[in-house]
């Protein structure tokens, strides 16, 4: 039994879907028809979209991507813990903790100000150059340190903005219940702040997933480097396209999943 309005809306929806489908088809059709007409298409196609090379390099690139995933996986907890520590240090109110505030401020300015790739070089080659023995001079360790330094600085800033965005009355309410500053931060402010910055941090993690590839500059053969090796040996850019596809296979579902989690969180409470 449908109301007049429901019938009208169903009609509108059908019309909208039809239009969306048609315009998508037209755009795709134009792309498929027009791009190959470009004079350099044949060369670009064989250089970037060589099916045989795609199939040949895919397994090795996928294997190399496991290295990216591993570096990412052990970096994230370190980044989160350090970022939180720095954010808290920056917000320290007690005068005794003033040095920590200063340290936090310098840390954030410094490591957000230096391009990641420079830090990867400086830390990845520089610190082991001081004479650390194996395995402590591994580029995996010091490359990770460089990523953690940069990204924890960003995460610290994001968290701090989240902490500051929590209304002062929340803190007042907690203090008036007799909670200590520590407990107020831990149970009242931080849980809200962290939730609020989940989207910003998700973007950060997607960026990190891509920046893991910078470690290749100091030796590790992760996916981008493996693609570069193939490119060099085969004189063809298709391996980069393979790498891009593999990246997308991970980052797109990851961001979608984060969106889903956030929406679910919101829906559960309304």
């Amino acid at each position: 039994m449908s109301t007049r309005r429901a019938a009208y809306e169903a009609r509108q929806r059908r019309r909208a879907n039809l239009l969306a489908g048609a315009s998508t088809l037209v755009v795709l059709g134009l792309l498929v028809l027009l791009v190959p007409l470009a004079p350099g298409w044949a060369a670009v196609k064989s250089s970037f979209f060589d099916g045989e090379i795609f199939a040949r390099t895919f397994p090795d690139l996928a294997r190399a991507f496991l290295i990216n995933i591993a570096i990412f996986a052990w970096s994230v907890p370190l980044i989160m813990v350090l970022g939180l520590a720095i954010a808290l240090a920056r917000g320290a109110r007690a005068p005794v903790l003033f040095p920590m505030r200063i340290f936090g401020a310098i840390y954030v300015d410094l490591f957000r100000g230096i391009p990641v790739v420079l830090l990867v070089y400086l830390v990845g080659f520089g610190i082991p150059g001081l004479g650390l023995p194996r395995p402590w001079n591994s580029p995996y360790i010091w490359g990770t340190v460089a990523l953690v330094l940069t990204y924890s600085a960003y995460v610290a800033e994001v968290l701090r903005s989240g902490i500051e965005s929590i209304h002062a009355s929340q803190r007042n309410a907690a203090i008036c219940l007799g909670l200590s500053e520590r407990d107020t931060m831990r149970y009242v402010i931080l849980p809200q702040a962290i939730r609020r910055v989940v989207p910003a941090n998700m973007n950060m993690l997607v960026a990190l997933q891509k920046d893991v590839a910078l470690l290749s500059f100091i030796g590790p053969v992760e996916i981008l480097r493996q693609a570069g090796i193939f490119k060099s040996l085969l004189a063809n850019f298709t391996p980069y396209v393979v790498a891009a596809v593999i990246f997308l296979c991970v980052t797109v579902p990851a961001t979608r999943y984060a969106d889903y989690l956030m929406n679910r969180d919101r829906d559960a409470r309304t």
């Binding site: 082991p128 500059f217 100091i218 030796g219 053969v221 090796i229």
Partner: peptide, 21 residues
């Protein structure tokens, strides 16, 4: 052990001096 790979000679030099290769 699997080799490490670099962009150019200068980086190889740095890695060798850092004792990584």
């Amino acid at each position: 052990q699997s080799p490490l790979v670099y962009d150019d000679n200068a980086n190889i030099t740095a890695a060798m001096q850092a004792g990584q290769i």
